[in-house]
């Protein structure tokens, strides 16, 4: 399948000399949700801004739907919707008018019905005649999404769409993003919230210092890089771990009631059977056992820390 967005060896050096992107190569498939994770200043916004035409690339190329973003910018930009990170909105325009303005900028004929439905989907229909400056932060965020969707884009870039919004609105946005994906829109979002990527993304890209460290299917990534933790709860507390269990690098909890064992899900032998046997031989009586998977956050923190 031809990727909807194809980034090839993209680099960006700002006039200040700051290298914001280094040799980024990435294919984004139609209809997927790709989450780009990275700390502040990692290059996420520069990457999005370059694809959308706000920032000029220093080298490399980007194709959207097989068309170059520079030589065929009319085609590529008409397919793209962008929700910026900042609440960049005018002050005196009315909600409905600002959406109609954005739709017109992309060369689309006015379509009152479509915009009405869009405002209803974003719970903004009641505010259609309100001025932008009278809206709350959450509503402004929704207006920005409405503006980005006003011209019916096939690719939607969301630059930290849920930054600074409350939990309820964040969940509403996740629902909206899923609905958009169901309608065939490809979504690329940047986020600080690992929980967000974990919840809605199909693939996850991790970017740091302008370099794309990895792009993986979310589930594969968690299985591939994620270690599992086996927690063994004891009936009686221990002061020290018995010598016979030293080879397992167990960690004893402060209260002495839990032994934690870290193991790799990718290896053929996890060591669990031998551990259980040795625990039994050491005369320890178990109260409970449970396992937990590493979160995306753990993976992210480890990767970024490794690179640093």
């Amino acid at each position: 399948m031809q990727p909807i967005v194809s980034i090839n060896n993209l680099s960006k050096v700002y006039s200040s000399g700051h290298q914001a992107l280094t040799d980024i190569t990435l294919d984004i498939q139609p209809g997927e949700i790709l989450a780009l994770l990275g700390p502040n200043g990692a290059g996420k916004t520069t990457l999005i801004s370059t694809i959308c035409g706000i920032v000029s690339a220093t080298s490399g190329s980007v194709q959207v739907d097989g068309h170059d973003i520079v030589s065929d910018y009319r085609h590529t930009r008409s397919m793209i919707g962008l929700v910026p990170q900042e609440l960049t909105l005018g002050a005196f325009e009315k909600v409905f008018n600002t959406l109609a303005f954005s739709r017109g900028l992309h060369g689309k004929q006015p379509n009152r019905q479509y915009l009405e439905q869009l405002l209803k989907d974003l719970s903004l229909w009641d505010k259609r005649d309100s001025t932008l400056m009278s809206l709350s932060g959450g509503m402004k965020r929704r207006v920005l999404i409405g503006k980005a969707l006003s011209h019916e884009p096939r690719v939607l870039f969301l630059d930290e769409p849920t930054a600074g919004v409350d939990v309820e609105l964040r969940k509403d946005m996740w629902k909206l993003i899923n609905r958009l994906r169901e309608s065939g829109v490809t979504i690329i979002l940047t986020t600080h919230y690992i929980e967000e990527a974990e919840e809605i993304a199909d693939r996850v890209g991790i970017i740091n210092n302008g370099k794309l460290l990895l792009v993986e299917d979310k589930t594969d990534l968690m299985q591939k890089l994620g270690s599992k933790k086996l927690s063994i709860e004891l009936r009686e507390p221990l002061n020290t771990i018995p010598d016979s269990l030293n080879k397992y690098d167990l960690l004893l909890s402060d209260n002495g009631l839990t032994l934690n064992y870290q193991y790799d899900t990718r290896s053929t032998r996890t060591g669990i059977t031998a551990l259980m046997k040795d625990i039994n031989n050491a005369g320890l009586i178990l109260r409970d056992i449970h396992t937990s998977q590493s979160t995306l956050e753990d993976i992210f923190v480890n990767l970024v820390a490794d690179q640093s």
Partner: peptide, 15 residues
């Protein structure tokens, strides 16, 4: 639009 930041719309539009 430059001052408020809404110039991004003009720059990212097929214009």
């Amino acid at each position: 639009p430059k001052f408020t930041g809404t110039i991004y719309e003009i720059l990212s539009a097929p214009l």
